[in-house]
Design a protein around this nucleic acid. Structure first.
Length: 382
RNA sequence: GUGGGUAUGGCGCAGUUGGCUAGCGCGCCAGAUUGUGGCUCUGGAGGCCGAGGGUUCGAGUCCCUCUAUCCACC
């Protein structure tokens, strides 16, 4: 059950009730592809840094350890000891990101496993069965994410196929949710809009999937090479055609600035590898912009990553110490950086929700962006 | 002491029969990274080629002396 609490322009403050608890939106979902937040972050850690939703991946978990094993272990929640919502990505993005290892057909996609090379077939039905075995809170439709440089002809054909795949996903998900031994019989299904940067293809596709009665709708195939302006334009043009009485999810995005811009345009679910991957690489988000702890200027810096931050890293450790850990390739360095970044993202989402509650989002957004774009020691890229 | 080897950027090494602005790996300094293969990629700085002398149009490469260091033998 999705309920809009208040709006400001197109921006929505809402909540989604699920069998694993209520998600307050706008929300950032913390990415743990293989049922683990990379950087030695435990689910206990997630509870301490305001995480609402954990995101895992169908393809990766199917390859290892295998969704049947996870089902036997009682489902993903029990397996990884996380009782709040989990969203599983369908494996569709791996059709794109593992392009050299796959072949796309009407029935689905043939992969060679990136782990051991063995052949894997995944189509809409397979993806739904795997996600049902994983028993995530929200399953994503199996789609194809066309390259940002794909030509119009290819994108049209791809998007038509993705729409046909969504019908198959929907049918299979309904069947699975009705089975006796299904762990989560109320698993939700989000459809995915595609169309690269072609407005009319995006809109036609949005209208078509809107009729399929999904529990939410995602914008896929963005932040894959196009400019920020193109991405914002696509969101502007497409969101009005996605059912706004359902959650809107912008997949794979993005920087704090991307998120603020997208919230303003009506998006309420996000996920991105940035806080985790950049954390592992020593890139830390602060209210004054992004800093790279590998830089020599932090060698003797006694300050925390961010003054006033109460995350597990900032409460106790200096930039100089964390820099040392990173350079020494100590696991703790990555872990502290990932915890800080996720805390930063989750806190920003909390601030966004508070601002929306108070009808103050526009002003908040401006303040936040101005702060992060400050010149000086920090990178302007946010 | 004798015989042999080695001395090239912070470290480890390449440098062909002497020939253009001396390379490579690691490290260092920066930058990328958007539904994650703890990866990968892209730039950049840094060298009186152990010291001195000689041969040559030209020496990191050849010759002499010295110094340092390693190995073997006495």
């Amino acid at each position: 059950m999705y309920r809009i609490l208040t709006t400001e322009g197109r921006a929505k403050r809402a909540q989604l009730e699920t069998v694993h608890g209520t998600i307050q939106t706008p929300v950032f979902m913390n990415v743990g592809t293989v049922a683990a937040i990379k950087g030695a972050v435990s689910t206990e850690d997630l509870e301490g840094i305001k995480t609402q939703v954990e995101l895992s991946n169908t393809y990766h978990l199917h390859v290892r350890p295998g969704d049947k094993i996870i089902k036997k272990m009682g489902g993903l929640h029990k397996f990884m000891s996380w009782n709040k919502p989990i969203l599983t990505d369908s494996g569709g993005f791996q059709v794109f990101s593992l392009a050299s290892l796959r072949k796309i057909k009407e029935e689905g996609v043939y992969f060679n496993s990136h782990v051991d090379g063995r052949k894997i077939f995944m189509g809409p039905e397979e993806s739904m069965r795997i996600q049902s075995n994983l028993a995530s809170t929200i399953a994503m439709a199996f789609d194809e994410c066309p390259s940002s440089v794909a030509d119009r002809h290819y994108v049209e054909a791809s998007v038509a196929r993705t729409a046909r795949w969504l019908e198959r996903c929907k049918t299979e998900m309904n069947r699975l949710n009705g089975l006796e031994d299904t762990i989560n019989k109320k698993q939700l299904l989000f459809g995915i809009n595609q169309g690269a940067v072609f407005d009319d293809i995006r809109i036609d596709h949005a209208k078509r999937i809107a009729e399929m009665e999904c529990d939410g709708y995602a914008l896929g195939g963005l932040a894959v090479g196009e400019s920020h302006e193109q991405m914002y334009h696509v969101i502007d043009e497409t969101v009005p055609y996605l059912p706004q009485d359902k959650p809107t999810y912008l997949m794979g995005v993005g920087t704090p600035a991307n998120i603020l811009e997208a919230v303003e345009r009506g998006v309420d679910f996000f996920d991105c590898v940035y806080p985790t991957r950049n954390g592992r690489h020593g890139h830390l988000y602060t209210n004054q912009g992004k800093i790279n702890l590998f830089n020599a200027r932090y060698e003797l810096d006694e300050r925390p990553i961010e003054e006033g931050c109460v995350c597990p890293a900032c409460r106790r450790y200096s930039r100089a110490y964390i820099r040392h850990l990173l350079k020494a390739k100590e696991m703790l360095g990555m872990r502290l950086c990932v915890l800080h970044n996720l805390y930063f993202y989750n806190t920003m989402m909390e601030e966004i929700r508070e601002a929306l509650d108070q009808g103050d989002f526009a002003a908040y957004k401006k303040r936040k962006l101005d702060g992060m774009c400050q010149s000086g020691e920090n990178s302007a890229e946010i």
